[in-house]
């Protein structure tokens, strides 16, 4: 089996300020990896480098692309990278407003990626958009409503549908349950788990919520001050943390 994503020596700094340093990992098809750490630990920098939003200073991000096999997304042209961003991977933002077009209908939001890769049949695009709304538990009758009329949880589900419509194999998520009520979080987590399982998706999820990673992630990477201090199976890292920082992190969680 070919790894879906191989990250080698990835580093990024902002002038004198360190973003992330010498990150290495391999993600296999179907795996969900969580990245935890406090604000400023470099987890979002890392995610943005992986997704091509930021250019790393050093390192390689080798993605097993659908059409051309393993390719270094850091070294490829912006045009190629954007194409992959519409086909092979997806990015779910913490704030749905960053990931949705708020003045475009739900159907248009979902259909955009299809149209960006060449779909030109309105009926087909609309049918696929409706199908995806149903899959993320949004009433298909709301296909023409704009996202600003949706609740926060619906907006986040719409963002997920918009990202998954072109069948990416890898999903990057930045605090996907961040701004949501606890009850809405649960529904979204269940939806994500079901989609990951049914579609065989791989995912990299950045969060500071250890409960979320325990329920969603197979593997966990712990970051502090731009460095990966520990990684392993999610329940192993949480139940038997090895590094001082991880031990502190795990012991600091309030037990509900």
């Amino acid at each position: 089996m070919t790894p879906l994503l191989q990250v080698e020596g990835l580093s990024k700094s902002y002038g004198a300020h360190l973003g992330c340093k010498d990150v290495n990992f391999t993600l296999w098809p179907g795996e969900v990896m969580g990245i935890v750490g406090e604000s400023g630990s470099g987890k979002s920098t890392l995610l943005n480098c992986l997704a091509g939003h930021l250019a790393p200073d050093a390192g390689r991000v080798i993605l097993d692309t659908r059409d051309k096999g393993p390719r270094d997304t850091v070294a490829m042209s912006e045009a190629e990278r954007r194409w992959l961003a519409r086909t092979d991977w997806a990015f779910v933002h913490q704030n749905p407003r960053d990931g949705l077009r708020m003045n475009v209908s739900a159907g248009g939001n979902v259909g955009e990626r299809l149209m960006a890769v060449g779909a030109r049949h309105y009926g087909d695009i609309r049918a696929q958009a409706s199908d995806w709304l149903a899959r993320v538990e949004i009433d298909a009758a709301r296909v023409d409503d704009r996202p600003r009329a949706f609740s926060g949880g619906m907006q986040q589900r719409l963002q997920i549908a918009r990202n998954l419509v072109t069948g990416p194999r890898l999903v990057f998520m930045d605090e996907p349950t961040g701004g949501l009520d606890v009850s809405v979080q649960a529904r979204l987590l269940d939806l994500l788990r079901g989609l990951v399982r049914r579609l065989g998706l791989s995912a990299v999820i950045v969060t500071h919520d250890l409960a979320v990673v325990r329920l969603l992630a197979d593997r966990l990477m712990v970051m502090k001050d731009g460095h990966v201090v520990e990684d392993g199976l999610t329940d192993q890292v949480l139940d038997d943390p090895q590094h001082a920082y991880t031990q502190l992190l795990v012991s600091s969680v309030l037990q509900a």
């Binding site: 912006e78 954007r82 209908s105 248009g108 149209m115 960006a116």
Partner: peptide, 22 residues
């Protein structure tokens, strides 16, 4: 400008899609 450079015209089509939907 980047969108033109990369022929990233999905958004243009979205505008037409919105017209038909509306």
């Amino acid at each position: 400008r980047t969108m033109h450079a990369l022929e990233d015209y999905g958004l243009m089509q979205v505008r037409l899609y919105e017209d038909i939907a509306r």
